[in-house]
């Protein structure tokens, strides 16, 4: 049998670890934000080549999977909503339901989750490997701040690319929804568009895109942070990759809930 004191000690250890993690995350966020600010003030010092490279890997390379996931999401959402609301004869509300749900929530969220799987994990793995091969130490002893060198280009790339991916995801998602409307209800495109325009305010679209900017920040931050926190053994990179994805998705969903409330409050003021 285990000594009960051991469990208490374990709990204490875990609490200390958690505290360490939180402190490290906060200082990392501070470090990266300072580096981002420095990048804004001295754009010449941004590593443009890396920036373009990551733009490419985060953006165009992610388009096929984004399109696939978003289209299917739109189809599934529209189909499920159609089955329910058809019972009440509320077919005319469907384009609004589909539009609002995709533009405000599912579009940004699904694209962010896909990007976490693709880019967040890649960032963690890349930086983790660099840590193990002492490349981070090399940077540091060269007098180069690793956050500026490694995180800032990724961050800018993600901040630019994820909203664009979200726009594509939104569009494809709504197109998927329209396909269901067309095949199940025979709704013509102009009617679908008109009903969508009627129910979906442009602010919802902007809301989704703004959310995706926040998600891009979270994905890059978590991915890189996990990379920097990689241990030194062989399986550490795998572990930090997994944990980057899990942590990042957790943060994204939490932030999403918070933002949903925030935007609702904001709309409350705006009407």
């Amino acid at each position: 049998m285990k000594n009960p004191a051991d469990s208490i000690i374990q709990c204490g250890d875990m609490a200390f670890q958690l505290k360490d993690e939180v402190v490290s995350l906060i200082s990392f966020v501070g470090d990266v934000t300072a580096a981002l600010w420095e990048g804004i003030r001295h754009p010449k010092r941004l590593r443009w080549k890396d920036f373009l490279f990551y733009m490419n890997t985060c953006g165009p390379d992610g388009v096929p999977i984004t399109i696939m996931i978003s289209a299917l999401m739109g189809v599934v959402l529209a189909y499920q909503a159609e089955v329910q609301s058809h019972k009440y004869g509320a077919d005319n509300f469907l384009p609004m339901v589909i539009g609002c749900t995709i533009l405000r929530e599912l579009g940004p969220l699904m694209v962010a989750i896909v990007a976490t799987g693709r880019s967040g994990s890649a960032f963690a793995a890349e930086i983790g490997t660099m840590k193990i091969s002492e490349e981070l130490d090399a940077l540091r002893t060269m007098g180069i701040r690793p956050t500026r060198f490694l995180v800032v280009p990724k961050m800018w790339a993600m901040l630019f690319m994820l909203p664009l991916l979200t726009v594509i995801g939104d569009f494809v998602g709504c197109a998927g929804g329209y396909m269901v409307m067309r095949s199940e209800l025979g709704m013509p495109l102009d009617v679908f568009l008109r009903l969508t325009r009627q129910g979906v305010a442009v602010k919802y679209f902007i809301e989704g895109v703004l959310k995706s900017v926040v998600f891009a920040y979270i994905i890059t931050m978590t991915g890189c942070w996990r990379g920097f926190r990689t241990g030194s053994d062989a399986i550490a990179v795998g572990r930090s990759t997994t944990s980057a994805v899990v942590t990042s998705i957790l943060f994204i969903v939490l932030t999403d809930a918070f933002l949903a409330k925030l935007f609702t409050v904001f709309y409350g003021w705006q009407g």
Binding site: D50, F53, M130, S133, E134, E135, D137, A138, R140, T141, M142, G143, I144
Partner: peptide
Amino acid sequence: SIMSEFGVAYQGGALFRSLNLAENIALP
């Protein structure tokens, strides 16, 4: 500033894999 006064060659080389040889040396 102190670090810029010395050079370090790490055990595994620690070259940046995304850069070619010339870029690696040009980086600092």
